[in-house]
Amino acid sequence: MSQVPASPGPDDDVSDEPIPMMQQLIDNPFLLLFLGVAMPTVLYIVWGVMEIVGIPIAK
């Protein structure tokens, strides 16, 4: 694909304006991947497992 000749590429459309932080976040799939795995892992699985582990065992 890199051999594609003489077409307008992103370098031709460079803007001086900084990219907003939210857009940078949305344009980074791996950062979103991290957040999308970390949030439910902490709030659902880790918190839930800690509650179950904390249940006293019947004697």
């Binding site: 694909m1 590429g9 992103p10 459309d13 949305i26 991947l33 999308g36 795995v37």
Partner: peptide, 23 residues
């Protein structure tokens, strides 16, 4: 550089599905 700027919205929705799939 097969696309410019952000990925299309439909692809972004697919990214969302892929992230949820990973978890």
């Amino acid at each position: 550089k097969t696309y410019n700027g952000s990925i299309p919205l439909v692809t972004f929705g697919a990214v969302t599905a892929a992230i949820i799939a990973t978890f």
